[in-house]
Design a protein around this nucleic acid. Sequence first.
DNA 1: CGAACGATGTAACCTTCGTGAATTCCGAAG
DNA 2: CTTCGGAATTCACGAAGGTTACATCGTTCG
Lengths: 244, 244
Amino acid sequence: MVNPLIRKLEHFARLTSGERQALERVVQTTRRLGPREDVIRDGDRPRHVNLILEGWACRYKQLEDGRRQVISIFLPGDLCDPHVFVLRKMDHSLGTLTPVLLAEIPEAAIREISAESRTLSEALWWEMLVTAAIQREWTVSLGQRLATERLGHLFCELFMRLKAVGLTSETSCEFPITQADLGDAMGLSTVHINRTLKELRAAGLIRLRGRQLTIPDFAALRAASLFDPAYLHHERDPSILHDD
Amino acid sequence: MVNPLIRKLEHFARLTSGERQALERVVQTTRRLGPREDVIRDGDRPRHVNLILEGWACRYKQLEDGRRQVISIFLPGDLCDPHVFVLRKMDHSLGTLTPVLLAEIPEAAIREISAESRTLSEALWWEMLVTAAIQREWTVSLGQRLATERLGHLFCELFMRLKAVGLTSETSCEFPITQADLGDAMGLSTVHINRTLKELRAAGLIRLRGRQLTIPDFAALRAASLFDPAYLHHERDPSILHDD
DNA sequence: CGAACGATGTAACCTTCGTGAATTCCGAAG
DNA sequence: CTTCGGAATTCACGAAGGTTACATCGTTCG
């Protein structure tokens, strides 16, 4: 299995085999976690950069009274906070949603690869800026979109991000998270997530059974959700953009 | 008037006079805009880094059907996207909320100051990471907090950010934006913003008249809004943290 | 094979917030 | 001082989504 980070960055930059090897080398120590475990907790001092190799994880923040917001979802190939060391303490937690295999990358390794290659340095910048753009798009979703649009938009986003690391078939992908977690991510109650999924299913926009999501007509879901993939910044490799 | 960026960064790093001068020098060309003008539009190619010197601005995104989400608010001393050049096109717009004076900083100038001084480089990293943390906190607000909490939290945040650049008195600050803009930022209708402000006023948590916000008892507003300033990462200079 | 548990699905009712339409306030321009 | 226009305020009503409670489904584990 190829390091999914390489696969993702190759949509942005043409990597030499040396650069690819440099990226392989950052994966030294790995760590396996079960579902619903914390990788690092709010208030802890960050010790390394986490790279997701398998499984789904998330950032989340828990309020004093128990309310929980999932702030972002991490998929294979996602780097969690490549420059977090500047800050002393985490202001949120990182946790798994499913069983996860992650690489623990030391600060120095990140510095080295971006010092060695301008291409890699730019590619890491691209990765960070896209992460920020995704965060902004979630702000838009939570602020403006109705429940159906919000969920539809999330499905479009996750499908495209999974596609970028080769984890989709033509119209389907794994979708291993619970409705409760979806609710925490989209700022909706579990009950309403369920209602909304029912509606999207009834409209023929998605199929969701077990841990499998199918989007039979991406263009339709995209239109229904006002999804515009520009914020994922695949402008240098538009092959991945569905334009059906 | 001192460059407010310097003032802000000094809460994080002890700057030499040389470093302070380097930061002054990045302000070469400035630009004055009226209220409600666009600095740069969704889809445009970014040409420089914008530094707010006076006035309030915002990131926003407009959906096809007219809905508008203000994604972040920029105050004096805020840098808008110091490394935006890696991406070809803006995925959102930057606009003013009030009359604004901003500095247009060329890409090269940013590179230079972070190459010259490790301290400045780290300080710019800190600034970027705090911006990201603020974005995450907005996600939490939009996802989980009720209208009163959401507004109260925003008031706490903006007050502390203004304090960091010396734009507050003991309990007051300028608050020059309209209820409509507040609504677009917090994902609430203008009417509901108005209702909520009334409620916060009635509870004695804020006074808001004209363009002036007063927070008579910061600790009270903080408690009512579940505001925890940790995400602003003033851990190296806690003097600014209200702990009344 | 059955118990136990987590996840999903549904229903009834309630709360928060949005909509549309006036009305009032206030600061700037004449 | 008056006028004007944007901003603030208020009201009545309706829609979106939350809450509580319970039933069902499916896996895993004994």
